[in-house]
Amino acid sequence: MTIFQALLIALLGYLGSIYGTFLFGTVGGWNLIGRPIVAGAVIGFIMGDVRNGIIIGAAIQALYVGLVTPGMSVPGDVNFASYIGIPLALASGASAEYAVAISVPLSLLGVAAIYSVATFNAVFVHLQERWIAEGKLKQAARIPIYSNISEFIVRFIPIFAACYFGAEFVPKLIALIPESLADIFQVLGGILPAVGFGLLIKYTLKSNRQLLYLLIGFIMIAVLHMPIVAVTIVALFIAFIDYQITSGRNAD
């Protein structure tokens, strides 16, 4: 593969990643050129073999067709699977099955990338807050532009290196991450949302007794596993009853 092809694929891989922001967000990125079937056509075009690109892309797509990424619970990440798996399979003349096989460890690597970026990006949150407090509002508004550098680094460099230096590079890259470090990141990623919720509670809570409302919401998910829409309907009902009581009316 030429260096130009590798650079182009790496750039598109970054733009089509979940937090790659510059193709109208997920509309043109993650959900469009980020889909393996579209990526297959695009990579095939760059490498001069559209037909096989689409065949391999469709095979990877089949594996991930039902993949939903609600909140931060990410079961797999198609980005590396597409933008590393498809070019390597095309370059080596390998079958679609080979691309599907390596797409599994690649998608796990992609999940590690998602967690590291989302954990690191908290730095930008604090920077934005500081700039707002200092009155630098224009810069503060530009934070989501600047912060995309973390996603760029985590996507562009591995994809470029894997495409350019070839197939033996990928297993080495996966082995490069020490397991304990990956564990720490995942644990941190799991408990960090608590800080955001803690802050939200601080601003919503009027008295300590109101923690009971919080607990009711918590139990509806943790114990009863209710869908969030149902939780909201119950919450509406509770608010309605509260209104009836506090306004001193009889229930109608």
Binding site: G71, M72, V187, G190, I191, P193, A194, F197, L200, I201, T204, L205, K206, Q210, Y213, L214, L215, I216, G217, F218, I219, M220, I221, A222, M226, I228, V231, T232, V234, A235, L236, I238, A239, F240, D242, Y243, T246, S247
Partner: peptide, 25 residues
């Protein structure tokens, strides 16, 4: 006032619900 209070209660219940969903340990 009634709407503010109601929205507040709904907000608290929903925060409790989504913290069970998002925080994992």
């Amino acid at each position: 006032d009634a709407i503010t209070r109601g929205a507040n209660l709904i907000g608290l219940i929903v925060v409790g619900a989504i913290s069970a969903q998002y925080v994992t340990a």
